[in-house]
Design a protein around this nucleic acid. Sequence first.
RNA 1: CGGGGUAUAGCGCAGUCCGGUUAGCGCACCUGUUUUGGGAACAGGGGGCCGCAAGUUCGAAUCUUGCUACCCCGACCA
Length: 567
Amino acid sequence: MNTYHNSFIHTLKEAPNDAEVISHQLMVRAGMIRKVASGVYSILPLGQRVFNKLNRIIHEEMMAIGGAECNLPHVVPAELWKSSGRWDQYGKELLRLNDRSDREFCFGPTHEEVITDLVNAYVNSYKQLPVLLYQIQTKFRDEIRPRFGLMRGREFLMKDAYSFHDSEASLQDYYDSARKAYSTIFTRCGLSFIEARADSGAIGGDESAEFLVIADSGEDEVLVSESGFAANVEAAPCLDINVTHDISNIAPLTMVDTPNVHRIDDAVGFFSVAANQTLKSLLVVVNDVFSLICLRGDHVLNESKISALLGGPFRFATEAEIQAHCGCKSGSIGPINLQLKISIYLDHSLKSFSHYICGANQTDAHFQYCVPQRDIPTFVWADLRNAEAGDPCPLDSSNTLTSQRGIEVGHVFKLGNKYSEAMGAKFTQHDGQLKAFEMGCYGIGVGRTIAAAIEQSHDENGIVWPEALAPFDVVILNLAPKEPALVDLVKTMVSHFETMGKDVIVDDRVESPGVKFKDADLIGFPMQVIVGKKTLVQQQIEIKYRRTGQKEMVSINELDAISPLVK
RNA sequence: CGGGGUAUAGCGCAGUCCGGUUAGCGCACCUGUUUUGGGAACAGGGGGCCGCAAGUUCGAAUCUUGCUACCCCGACCA
C-alpha cells in the first residue's frame, strides 16, 4: 500500500525564495524536486512518479510510430563531436571533461553525433531504411542562466529521437508522423499547446517546428493568426510592403549636432519624433566581412535572418571596428558617408515612411530628412527584423498577427544531411551509389513539460494535475488513522481502486485534518476520498474532485459505485 | 561575461551599521497531555564551524581582504 510515509512525501509551507515561477514554487513545496546546484535538481519520489507517467505516454506514442528505444552514453568522446565540427562550434554550453589520461570528452547535450555514428556502423543499404531510434535520457547543457526550476535547468531529462532515410520524401513522412505523435502526446497530457514554425538554431537543418504550451510565464513569443499561421518570433517572416511616397517636397539631408544622443530613445526625445521615424544602423561582421544593417528604430533585429542573409553566424562589430568603418562611436552610426565601402541592407519596413532620423557617422551628430532611396548610395532591401504583433500575417495579409507566450516543450527538425555529410555517414542506394543519410531529429523536454503542465493548471491551493500526469489518481485521507474500522475500510478502498487500475495513496499520518486537506490540495491529486469518524457514524464517504472542488457523499455500502473518474 | 544582491538549523527570516553573556524567532522535527472535518493548544526538548580562508582585536556572525556558492538584471548595442 502506498502511504505518505513510504512514498517519501515532504511538503513545505513556504517555498524557497529563489523560486520565481509558480511551477517551481509548487514543485518544491509539494516535495517533487530539490535543488542540488544551480540548474541541477534531485527528483523526489513524488516527482519521479510524474516523470514516469509522462515517460510512459512518450514511450507509447514513439512506439506507435515505429520508434525503437535505445540508450546512448552521457559521456561522449570529443572525436565524435569533432567529426561533425560541433566541438568547436558549440561553445561554453558544452560541458567538457577530461579523463585520467587527459582524453577529451563532453557530457552530451544532444546526441546527433553518437546516433549517426551508431546507425552508420550498421546500416549500409537503402533496404535497411528508414530507421527511427529514440531514448529518454538526462542531458547537460551549461546554460548561460539556468532558471525557473525544471523549466530551464542545466541537467534535464529529454526524449530525443533520430530518424534516418534514403530520401527527402521518406524524411518528410517521418517528420509529419513525429509531429502527429507530438500532438497526441501533449493532448494526452491535457495540455493546451500550439505547433509553430521555428528557427532551427544550434541544431541546424532545413525546417523545424516547435510545440509550445501556452503560458504567460513562457520564455518564447509566438505569433499566430486566424489563417492558421503560427511561428516563433525568431522564425516569422515579415512581408515586404508596397508603399511609395512623394519625396519631391522633403527637405534636403541636414546634419544636426546631437550631443549625448546615442540611443533610439534619445533621438526620439531630441527630435520629438516617433521611434518608427528613426533609422537605426548596426555594424555586423561575418567571416571578417562587414555589413551595415538598417532597421526602423522601433524594430528588433532578427539574428537568424541576418545570418542567413550574410551566409554565416554574425557578430556585432567592436567599438574599434566601428571607429574604423564609420569614423565615429557606436551610437552615431548611419548608412551615409561611411569611411569604408561596405554592403548596406535596409529592412523592408523602412518603406513605411518617407524620411528618417539616422546617425551621421560623426560622433554626436545625426541626419534629419534621410530619404533612403535619395540619400543612401547603394543598398539592398531585405527582411531583417523580428516580426511582431500587429504585423500582417505572412500567409494572408488581410489577417494580423497576435502574440502569445509559450513554453517550448518539443521541437522537431528536418536535419537533412548536415550531420551525415559532415561525418561521412552513407548508405548504398538502389543504383549502387553512396548517399548521405537524410536525417530528422525530434526532442521533448520531459521536466519542462511537467513544469509547463503546472504553469497551466494550478490554483491558489496548489497543483491541479491533469489526470494523465498525476503522481497518484486517488488520495485517501484517513482523518482518524487510529480507528481500526477505518483502517479496514481504507484497505478495502485501496484494493477497489487498484483493481480498477488506479494509483492510490493513503494519507495515514497522525496529523490534524487541516494539514491533510492542505497537502492533498497542494500536491493536486485529482480525486480525494475522505474518511473520518463521521464516516462511521453516517456510513458515508466523502469524495472531492480537485479540479472543480465538487464534493459528493457515497454510502459505504455502495463502494463499488465509486468511480475514480474526475468530474 | 558585465552590473546588482545574498550567504545565520531542513525551509522562511532577525541580529551585522555601532565588535562584548550561552546566536534568536516562525515553520518543520522529538517527548508528553489535551485535541481531531480545512495548516490545533499547552509544557518540555533536540538541532548551528553564523559560506570558506586569512587578517585586525583582549574578544568577530558583526570590521578588513581574498575566495566560493547562490539569486536577480543585462548581454538586441548603435
